[in-house]
Simulated assay, not measured.
Amino acid sequence: MPLTKPNQALRRELQGTASDLKWSAVELMRIAERLSLAGNETDAQAVLRICQVMQDGEDRLEALAEEVRGGGLGRIDTSH
């Protein structure tokens, strides 16, 4: 069964936000590496923990997007 327009939009939003989290985590990993190289291991480890939280969020959003695709989760179409 094809997705309704609201569910297509929801899936795109979830995937887009997951992608944003992924990009942000990659950038933070680069910052953590620079912090570590500068001898600031405490802050580097803190940033890496933030990255892990972001990656976990990315995984949850991707799973929700798949639920939308499978029809198990969605938005109510109130356009009629």
Rank of each mutant, 00 (worst) to 15 (best):
I31V: 13
N7R: 03
A18I: 08
T78L: 09
L64F: 15
R60V: 13
T17Q: 09
A9M: 10
Q45C: 06
V47S: 02
A44M: 03
A46L: 11
A46S: 10
E41R: 02
A9S: 09
L37I: 05
A38D: 12
Q55D: 14
R12V: 12
G16P: 05
E41S: 02
L14F: 06
D20F: 10
S19V: 05
D43H: 02
E27M: 10
M54E: 03
R34C: 01
D77I: 04
T78A: 07
R49T: 13
A63C: 08
L21T: 07
I50M: 08
G57D: 08
E27F: 07
V47F: 00
E67F: 11
L73D: 01
M1S: 13
D56N: 15
G70Q: 15
H80G: 07
S19P: 02
A9D: 13
G70T: 12
Q52E: 13
S36M: 04
S19L: 11
G16C: 07
L73H: 06
W23M: 10
H80T: 01
E67L: 14
D43R: 02
V47L: 03
I76D: 03
Q15V: 03
S79D: 02
E66V: 15
L35I: 00
R34K: 11
L35S: 01
A63D: 14
V53S: 11
R30S: 11
L61Q: 09
A25H: 04
A18C: 09
L64H: 13
G74C: 08
N7G: 02
Q52F: 05
Q15P: 00
P2H: 06
E27S: 11
L48Q: 14
V68Y: 08
Q8L: 13
L21A: 11
G57H: 09
A63N: 13
H80F: 06
A63M: 14
G57Q: 09
H80R: 03
A32M: 08
I76K: 04
